[in-house]
Computed example of a mutant assay.
Amino acid sequence: MADTQEDRLAQILARKRAQAMGYLSTRKSSLAGAYSKAESRVFTPEFVSELEQANSTRRVIRNPWLTETLQSHSSDSDDLHRHANVLPFGPQIAADMSATH
Score class of each variant (00 low, 15 high):
residue 40 S to E: 01
residue 46 E to I: 08
residue 60 V to M: 15
residue 60 V to K: 14
residue 41 R to N: 10
residue 98 S to C: 00
residue 1 M to A: 15
residue 32 A to T: 02
residue 26 T to Q: 13
residue 2 A to F: 11
residue 86 V to Q: 09
residue 35 Y to S: 05
residue 96 D to T: 07
residue 65 W to G: 08
residue 43 F to Y: 05
residue 25 S to I: 12
residue 25 S to P: 05
residue 44 T to E: 02
residue 37 K to F: 06
residue 85 N to G: 00
residue 56 S to M: 01
residue 20 A to C: 10
residue 27 R to I: 10
residue 86 V to M: 06
residue 98 S to A: 11
residue 29 S to M: 12
residue 21 M to V: 05
residue 79 D to M: 15
residue 82 R to D: 08
residue 98 S to V: 11
residue 90 G to D: 09
residue 76 D to C: 13
residue 67 T to C: 13
residue 13 L to P: 00
residue 82 R to I: 07
residue 47 F to W: 04
residue 94 A to N: 01
residue 44 T to G: 02
residue 21 M to L: 14
residue 34 A to P: 08
residue 77 S to F: 13
residue 5 Q to Y: 03
residue 37 K to D: 07
residue 59 R to K: 15
residue 3 D to E: 03
residue 39 E to R: 09
residue 87 L to R: 04
residue 92 Q to L: 14
residue 94 A to V: 12
residue 99 A to D: 07
residue 12 I to Q: 04
residue 80 L to H: 04
residue 46 E to M: 09
residue 35 Y to N: 01
residue 42 V to R: 06
residue 68 E to G: 06
residue 53 Q to A: 13
residue 94 A to C: 12
residue 33 G to T: 03
residue 43 F to A: 13
residue 91 P to E: 02
residue 97 M to G: 02
residue 99 A to I: 14
residue 18 A to G: 08
residue 85 N to C: 11
residue 31 L to K: 07
residue 61 I to A: 14
residue 84 A to V: 07
residue 55 N to F: 10
residue 9 L to F: 03
residue 8 R to W: 06
residue 83 H to A: 15
residue 27 R to Q: 04
residue 20 A to K: 13
residue 22 G to C: 15
residue 95 A to G: 01
residue 77 S to V: 13
residue 69 T to H: 08
residue 36 S to P: 14
residue 31 L to Y: 08
residue 90 G to R: 05
residue 97 M to W: 03
residue 84 A to C: 09
residue 46 E to K: 11
residue 28 K to R: 14
residue 57 T to D: 06
residue 65 W to Q: 06
residue 35 Y to I: 14
residue 7 D to P: 00
residue 4 T to S: 12
residue 35 Y to R: 03
residue 23 Y to Q: 09
residue 26 T to S: 14
residue 36 S to E: 02
residue 36 S to G: 10
residue 101 H to M: 10
residue 11 Q to S: 04
residue 16 K to S: 10
residue 15 R to F: 04
residue 5 Q to K: 03
residue 22 G to A: 15
residue 48 V to R: 08
